[in-house]
């Protein structure tokens, strides 16, 4: 078996029974999206912006604490943010306008502000998304999206991705082992052609698997819609609990707007 235990996607999930774990997935999805919107809506050049970021950070850390997501897990989630960090670090150097001296470097003042805001907003949003991923299984997320009326075709594609990512990565792994078993060296000249051919082969295999899966689905009466199981209504108390995160962030934003 090529797939590691647990699979690549569910590796982000941390099993638990916290109040956050027990919330319906659609509630959590809406909460994280609303939170990110509030964070992004914060004016970049306002003097009180750093205080607002601190407030948002407090809110998301509180949510993480309730969910039992440990700091290490949160930090690991931030890895996806790396491209933003690089971009944010470049901004003070390339933006024009008044300059300030920091550690002997001449940096753009507005570049520093913009870069800092970008970094803060991205970090906060990723933190919220990490709490979501750590407390919700991938298939639960899928159910949540379905209940939020995301088009059924998109949800099905996501579902198949969740199901087959380990199968396909297992295939990829076996192809690599087979290559290397015949003394293939990825660093040699011309290696790219071989890897390209392997990618092509993997694509064709996956395409053929898609056809076989479709056949198996038709054989069991598939007519274009994935049948749904029972759908339980979400009590309004759960919505309130879930939305307390964006509401807290919203309160911080409103306070800043009014006082600042």
């Amino acid at each position: 078996m090529g797939a590691r235990h647990g699979g690549a996607l569910s590796a982000r999930y941390v099993a638990g029974t916290s109040p956050v774990h027990r919330l319906a997935p659609q509630v959590k999805l809406v909460a994280v999206l609303a939170y990110a919107l509030v964070v992004v809506a914060t004016p970049v050049h306002a003097g009180w912006a750093p205080w607002a970021y601190a407030g948002y950070l407090l809110a998301v850390l509180a949510a993480a604490a309730v969910a039992g997501v440990r700091p290490g897990r949160l930090a690991a989630g931030l890895v996806v943010e790396t491209p933003f960090v690089v971009f944010a670090l470049l901004l003070p150097f390339v933006t024009r306008g008044p300059r300030v001296e920091v550690l002997g470097l001449s940096l753009s003042e507005s570049g520093l502000q913009t870069g800092g805001a970008l970094l803060a907003k991205a970090t906060l949003s990723v933190l919220a998304a990490t709490v979501l991923a750590a407390t919700t299984e991938p298939r639960e997320l899928m159910h949540g999206l379905e209940r939020l009326r995301l088009p059924s075709a998109l949800v099905q594609i996501l579902g198949f991705m969740i199901r087959y990512v380990d199968v396909v990565s297992g295939e990829l792994h076996r192809m690599r082992v087979a290559r290397e078993s015949r003394a293939f060296d990825g660093r040699r000249r011309g290696a790219l052609r071989v890897v390209g051919a392997a990618a092509g082969a993997l694509f064709i295999r996956s395409y053929e698997r898609g056809e076989r899966v479709h056949l198996a689905m038709l054989s069991r009466g598939y007519t274009g819609r994935l049948p749904r199981g029972p759908v339980a209504a979400v009590p309004s108390r759960d919505w309130l609990t879930g939305l307390s995160l964006p509401l807290a962030a919203g309160a911080v934003l409103a306070t800043g707007m009014l006082l600042g």
Binding site: P138, R139, M142, G159, F160, I162, R163, Y164, V167, R209, R212, V213, L215, A216, M217
Partner: peptide
């Protein structure tokens, strides 16, 4: 291939 047959989560 059971991986073709079992496509649900």
């Amino acid at each position: 291939d059971p991986d073709d047959q079992l496509f649900m989560p």
